[in-house]
Design a protein around this nucleic acid. Structure first.
Length: 898
RNA sequence: GGGCAAUUAGCUCAGUUGGUUAGAGCGUCUCGUUUACACCGAGAAGGUCGCGGGUUCGAAUCCUGCAUUGCCCACCA
């Protein structure tokens, strides 16, 4: 139980203020932080003598704004804050620039889990809705995260804080992408990518976790060959059998030779291919290939220009090529396929305990299903070569040094970087595709936007009656739909609405116009198809009588053909387009009309146009008008829906945050002094910052890289939510104080190695905090109305000398980034020299009756104490500041000269 | 299959360029209710520095081999 202390105010006026007998970090820490922040001294431009100071800059690795800080964050805050505080006290213009990362994929995964708990899914939401919700979620978490950084004592300059989705950040990221594109270093390629069927996105190689598994391995009879596979479900399309050119067992077969053979779903023609990628030692030395779903096979197919067929869809189900197995999930299909093969006598043998490595999604553990997809890639070789040169020339140095080799080896073996992610949360890729031919263009000039909206629901729609040019009104649902569409379009700058003049479109257009405040022009050319005497009849009755109603240029009876609609509508559309030039226009029309409009816009075949699902009531399609496409002469585009891999933007963080290219900070502070971050993200982040920094600015982004290890639990195990051994830094600081946690994280922790965080250790440093407070209280108690002075004795001089020696050693340690040694030395000096020995030795002198002696002893103690506070301040900023201000009211230890 | 790191007191870890009796925190034991502090003080026990070789006047520290553990990388169907 806490013993109630009289408050300071209750002391009589004129009496020296007493120090409370116990230091209460829970109240002192937030107050002190507030005072620091309000003083403005986190901002180097507001430090005393700001102009004469030499720049010192650390860019904070932006924590993910999707949750709370973990122990690893506490580690980086501690180390970077030590660096910053020391630099500031040491007379530098110390800037520690904070930030927050939108963490694209990670955050979307977190948010999807939240949706799942609420019984929702992103696949039912529009991209915009999802983005908006995640943004709200992220901004809320971002502010929590910032509060947590404050409570850890981070002396960073909040006035310069950046978020990875700030407009200025996005602009620079776009500029970099454009530059890469112009230099031929970014390309769009049909390439095999690592696809997660659950998350519906592709990954870079770094996001794949290899897992060892035991699975059955099947030997199958493939014509005259026996092939081995652990994945029979991919074998449907296998029509190439590959072997090593030097394999004597297959010397009789020639490259290109055709062989007829019986396969899973009937006879096929197989082609022999000879390729050196084959390992003669493995299995039978012959294998069939599935280029669409395997990276090695893809490589072979590339070299020999072989056909590729997709067997498995994006959700992990078999496609029609699998015949009777189509639609099945892989696990289900595998057994059945094997059963069938066995039935046909094609199963030679099974090795039940085959040990192999399976590539899985690092987030959900789902087996990665390689797919061939169009993605954006960065050609990393030239960038990596430049980075290697810089490392070679020691323009960047690493602590610990071994990371230099690790980094170099990775850069030497780098492969192209897939930077597109199929998620909504992130920076959308500034590329547009020609809707006619699919050609990609980076940031074309968009002259206008067209939105095509189908009218809202009518009772006829609902009852499935054929209504063409008949004039029917919207029903209540239809009006609500129109209203919703209007609201959605509000943010677009619409100049004009063009509408069919039939009632249901008029009404829809009017409601939208009301929402967005634009004029409406009517044009009968956009009326629905004229159904002639079929008008008003039930669709199913007509289908029963006439068969398929979706015919292209053939009448059912006396109705208008789709082709005629197409011609009429396309002429009208083109006429309006030229009339309304650069305007943003909404076109309100009918299902049949939109179908034919889409056919023209996308250059679809009649069959494709007529079989695709119709647009829903009040559904909004959009298309951008851009420059004439050099390939097909179309000028309509739609923007890529993919977003950048989050590391593509954070890889540019140092120069972005400093305001490249013209910012004052950029000119003064780039390259920065230190990049301090977790060793585990060296490939994800550090190497990419070096590559992109050099590429964009011509200089390395930082001179030094300091990498810390993992923070483990007390038993030395990796913390993870699933293990339930996660230590929350906030719980620890609430219990023992931030100063104690910081000491526990820094003492005994060498750079690059992991640290087990045991609560006992934190408690030990909490005790140290108390020790500091009490020693200070003793010294304070003995001053009589203020600091005293007296001629120091020989012993005093010796003690002051010793302190100077210790301080010089600590300074050396800090300068060499040996924070663990510096902290321990300061700790040891304070407790076991200053408190245990020097205070005890001074007691008789203080209690004696010689005033001069007393004053000298007191003055020395005070000097030793305050110097100790300075030495300890970078490590334990809170308690040292509190003590300092008791002795030197009106000043701030944080900005005292070291 | 490669690469890297670690192996020091019961536990978690320091030990900077090789130099006198190898350190810290926590834990254990003994003593101490001395007016800064029991979230304390004084003291103690506890280590053949993973194992084997080598270099050296001298090795926890450098070299080499081995063992164990952990991490990273890698397209064997």
């Amino acid at each position: 139980m806490k013993n109630p202390e009289p408050t300071n105010r209750s002391c009589g006026a004129g009496m020296p203020e007493k120090m409370q007998s116990r230091y209460d970090h829970t109240t002192a820490e937030p107050e002190t932080y507030k005072q620091w922040e309000e003083s403005g001294a986190f901002n180097p431009d507001k430090l005393p003598d700001a102009k004469g100071r030499e720049p010192y800059t650390i860019i904070m690795p932006p924590p993910n704004a999707n949750g709370h800080l973990h122990a690893g964050h506490a580690m980086f805050v501690t180390i970077e804050d030590i660096m910053t505080r020391y630099a500031r006290m040491n007379g530098k213009s110390a800037l520690w620039l904070p930030g927050a990362d939108h963490a694209g994929f990670e955050t979307q995964v977190v948010y999807e889990k939240k949706l799942e708990r609420e019984g929702r899914t992103r696949f039912e939401m529009s991209r915009e809705e999802l983005y908006k919700e995640i943004m709200a979620f992220t901004l809320e978490n971002k502010s929590h995260m910032e509060g947590e950084l404050r409570s850890l004592g981070a002396s960073c300059d909040w006035s310069r804080e950046k978020f990875t989705l700030d407009p200025a950040v996005i602009e620079t990221v776009y500029d970099t992408f454009k530059k890469l594109y112009a230099d031929g270093l970014v390309y769009r390629g049909k390439r095999i990518v690592s696809w997660c069927p659950k998350h519906q996105t592709s990954f870079s190689d770094l996001e794949i976790a290899d897992v060892e598994r035991v699975d059955p391995f099947y030997y199958l009879q493939y014509g005259p060959f026996v092939i081995g596979t652990s994945r029979p479900e991919t074998k449907f399309g296998d029509k190439y059998v590959v072997m090593h050119p030097d394999d004597p067992r297959y010397a009789n077969y020639a490259d290109g030779q055709k062989i007829e053979l019986e396969w899973i779903n009937g006879p096929i023609t197989a082609t022999v291919v000879k390729d050196e990628a084959i390992d003669m030692e493995f299995g039978t030395g012959a294998m069939t290939i599935t280029p669409w779903h395997d990276a090695v096979d893809f490589g072979i197919a590339e070299r020999h220009e072989l056909d590729r067929e997709q067997i498995i869809d994006e959700r992990g189900r078999l496609l029609p090529i699998a015949g009777e197995f189509a639609g099945m999930k892989i696990a289900e299909a595998r057994e059945k396929i094997i059963a069938k093969l066995k039935g046909k006598g094609l199963l030679v043998k099974v090795d039940e305990k085959y040990n192999h490595v399976v590539r899985t999604c690092y987030k959900c553990g789902t087996v990665i299903e390689p797919q061939i997809k169009d993605q954006w890639f960065v050609k990393t070789k030239p960038l990596a070569e430049r980075a290697l040169q810089a490392i070679e020339k020691k323009e960047v140095s690493f602590i610990p040094e071994r990371y230099e080799t690790i980094c170099r080896q990775w850069l030497e073996n780098i492969i192209d970087w897939n930077i597109s992610r199929q998620i909504a949360w992130g920076i959308r890729i500034p590329a547009w595709f020609c809707v006619r031919c699919g050609e990609a263009r980076v940031e074309p000039e968009i002259k206008a936007k067209w939105f095509i909206v189908r009218h809202g629901e009518t009772d006829s729609n609902k009852s499935k009656r054929l209504v063409g040019q008949g004039d029917v009104p919207l029903n209540d649902e239809g009006r609500a739909q129109a209203r919703a569409a209007g609201k959605k379009l509000k943010s677009e700058k619409i100049d004009l609405i063009v509408s069919s003049d039939l009632g249901r479109c008029r009404e829809t257009a009017a409601i939208i116009a009301e929402e967005i405040g634009a004029e409406v022009a009517y044009d009968p050319a956009f009326r629905e198809r004229n159904h002639g005497n079929l008008e008003g009849q039930l669709r199913e009755d007509l289908e029963a009588k006439h068969g398929n109603l979706y015919r292209y240029d053939e009448r059912v009876t006396d109705d208008e053909t789709h082709k005629e609609v197409e011609d009429r509508v396309w002429v009208a559309f083109q006429k309006h387009r030229s009339a309304h030039g650069g305007k943003n226009v909404i076109l309100v029309s009918h299902g049949g009309v939109i179908r034919m409009l889409v056919k023209q816009i996308r250059n679809l075949t009649p069959e494709d146009a007529l079989t695709r699902p119709s647009v829903k009531n009040a559904e909004v399609l959009s298309v951008d008008v851009g420059p004439t496409c050099p390939t097909c002469e179309g000028d309509l585009y739609e923007q890529d829906t993919d977003t950048f891999d989050t590391w593509f933007s954070s890889g540019q963080w140092p120069f972005i945050t400093l305001g490249y290219p013209d910012g004052k900070d950029f000119k003064k502070r780039y390259p920065t002094d230190v990049m301090e971050t977790a060793g585990e993200i060296i490939f994800f982040w550090v190497t990419r910052m070096i590559m992109l920094g050099l590429y964009v600015t011509g200089e390395v982004p930082f001179r030094n890289v300091y990498l810390h290890g993992l923070v483990l639990d007390a038993k030395g195990q990796k913390m993870s939510k699933s293990k339930g051994n996660v230590i929350s830094p906030l719980e620890i600081t609430t219990k023992y104080g931030t100063d104690a946690l910081r000491m526990a994280l820094v003492v005994g922790n060498t750079p690059g190695t992991s640290l087990a965080l045991a609560e006992d250790r934190v408690r030990g440093y909490r005790n140290f905090t108390t020790k500091i407070w009490n020693a200070a209280r003793f010294v304070y108690m003995n001053r009589q109305g203020g600091s005293m002075s007296g001629t120091p004795s020989a012993d005093d001089e010796k003690n002051l000398d010793e302190l100077r020696t210790v301080k010089a050693e600590i300074t050396g340690h800090i300068e060499r980034s040996e924070f663990h040694l510096a902290a321990e030395k300061a700790y040891h000096y304070f407790w076991h020299t200053f408190a245990d020995k020097l205070i005890e030795a001074a007691k008789p002198r203080l209690q004696g009756d010689k005033t001069e002696e007393k004053a000298a002893a007191q003055a020395t103690l005070e000097k030793l104490l305050l110097e100790s506070m300075k030495m300890l301040h970078p490590f334990m900023p809170f308690v040292t500041e509190a003590v300092w201000q008791k002795f030197r009211p009106g000043t701030m230890l944080m900005i005292e000269p070291w």
